[in-house]
Computed example of a mutant assay.
Amino acid sequence: MSYPPSSPPSKTAALSRFRRAGACAGVLLASATALLSAGAAPAVAAPAEQGPVTAVVQPRSQARVTAAVLGLGGAGREPVLYGQDALYDTASIVKVDILAALLLQAQDEGRRLTARERALAEPMIRTSDNEATNVLWRKIGRAPGLEAANRRLGLTSTKGGPGGKWGLTQTTASDQIRLLRAVFGPAGTSKAHASPLNAESRAYIQSLMSRVAKDQAWGVSAASDTEGALKNGWLRRTTSGLWDVNSIGRITVDGRPCLVAVLSDGSASMRDGVSLVERAARQAVEAAARR
């Protein structure tokens, strides 16, 4: 599924502050009230040109957002948090986790992915193909298989979605940083943060996340001058009509690699959710730079 979001705002010069060596160390708990109040008001659809005039009102926004930032300049650091580290639906960002689980299972069997598995993994990450994801979700053993892999990857708060509903997997921003560290962490990482994914598996995930479709290259990349490597997720909840919009990935800020995860829900539209995620990514990176 794809969606053409509005063009991201220009990058701020404040990102240069990220060069400080301890920029991403420690934990920052900050209120997201100001960020949410800056969001767009719910839109009202224009009436049809003919026939009865009936205003269709979008659901009222109940948006919340959490961002986490971790610099890759040193081992053993904890992410800077912007907002509460609460649980959110993953939507399609879980596809990175599914691929990591698939690769771990293949490693355990002493093999590489088959041609068929690779033919499914590539569209799952690059174009967010849901049918390919359905197949690989079943292949890894659905939620139990995902959770078994996550215990090895260091995720502590992520619970797989029920049945075939992988998009309803629940996670936190901190857990998504743990996943990203397992994928992007540099060689020589401390034993406590060593990835169970081998170098070939990590390089494969990185390659796919670096080549997502152009119409999906939004989100955490708004906090960087380069496109980076990312995976986004979006899901409209049928019960409320509100949107889950998420983005995770590795970006470069002032020449330094940085992992960023932004999770949100409750936006009145996907466009509002994308704007919220991108603002949160920029503000979280700037907050990390002030530490």
Rank of each mutant, 00 (worst) to 15 (best):
G273R: 00
P9N: 05
W218G: 08
V53F: 08
Q170N: 13
I140L: 04
L103E: 06
A23E: 00
S267I: 02
V260G: 14
T238Y: 09
S210L: 04
A132F: 05
K165Y: 14
L103A: 06
S224K: 08
V277Q: 02
V285D: 04
A119I: 07
V96L: 04
A268H: 07
A91E: 02
A121C: 03
S240R: 09
L208K: 04
T189G: 14
S224A: 13
A101E: 05
S6Q: 13
E117V: 11
R282D: 06
T252S: 13
E109A: 14
T12R: 15
G83F: 13
E131D: 13
A75E: 04
G167L: 10
G266R: 07
A67F: 08
H193D: 15
V262M: 05
Q84H: 09
G266M: 09
G110D: 04
N134E: 08
E78R: 12
A55R: 14
L230R: 12
E49S: 12
A203C: 11
P123Q: 00
S221L: 00
V44I: 11
F184N: 04
E109L: 13
I98C: 12
D225S: 08
L208M: 10
A25C: 02
M270D: 03
L113N: 07
A21V: 06
S240V: 09
L168I: 11
T54V: 15
D215M: 07
L168W: 14
S174M: 03
A25S: 05
G161H: 06
A67K: 02
T66C: 14
E286A: 07
W243N: 14
A48R: 14
R250A: 12
L136G: 05
R237W: 02
R17M: 09
S247K: 08
A100V: 04
K231L: 01
R64M: 07
A101N: 01
E227H: 12
V277M: 11
Y204A: 07
C24H: 06
R236P: 05
A199S: 15
A14F: 13
G273W: 06
S16K: 12
L259G: 11
E78S: 15
S157R: 15
A229H: 05
D254K: 12
A91L: 02
A48P: 15
E49V: 15
A132P: 08
G255F: 09
V80I: 09
S201P: 07
V183Q: 04
Y204I: 00
A268K: 00
G219E: 00
L235M: 10
D85M: 01
T171P: 13
R291G: 15
P186C: 11
W137R: 04
P59L: 00
L87R: 13
W137M: 08
I177H: 05
V212K: 10
A288D: 09
I251F: 01
V285H: 10
A86I: 11
D108F: 12
A41Y: 02
L179E: 01
L276P: 04
L235I: 08
T66A: 15
Q216I: 07
Y3E: 03
A38P: 13
